[in-house]
Amino acid sequence: MKSKYLLVLGTVSLIGLPGAVLAHGATVEYRQVQAIEIDATYSGGQPMGNAQVTVYAPNNPAKPWLTGMTDPQGRFSFTPDPAQPGNWEVKVRQAGHGDLVTVPVREEIALSPSKTKESASLSRWVARGDRDYASKTQQVLLGAAGVWGFFGTALFFARRKPE
């Protein structure tokens, strides 16, 4: 290890081809995904170009999930597996220099790249929201309605009969 360098993280939105195109039976679709971009530089500010990159997923941090190299500007981007929210770790090394950075990926972000899983995620979120909302409503509306019902019934039986 000769000197420190910095890894600067950024999250970028990678937007695919705009819209679906049909031509000669080919189908091109697009989807929006959120990717992680790594920016590796030495302490002096020089980019760590063509450095070795290893990405570890939260579910199996001992085994590389993805390997690659930074571009000449020291940048590298990847899209986390939507099924694995948690701490993603990215190791960048070059000629005895190295560092590891942890990228916390939340579930709602991780699930967004896949259309199918995004739908599943949204459904689950809505379901949870409805359930939370309903439980509070029960405490207020059902309680009040119940009290008023029994109170009204009791008043009905307790009323004085006309003489």
Binding site: Q138, Q139, L142, G146, V147
Partner: peptide
């Protein structure tokens, strides 16, 4: 009655 309702909730 309100107690039962809140308890269930």
């Amino acid at each position: 009655v309100p107690g039962v309702l809140i308890g269930c909730s």
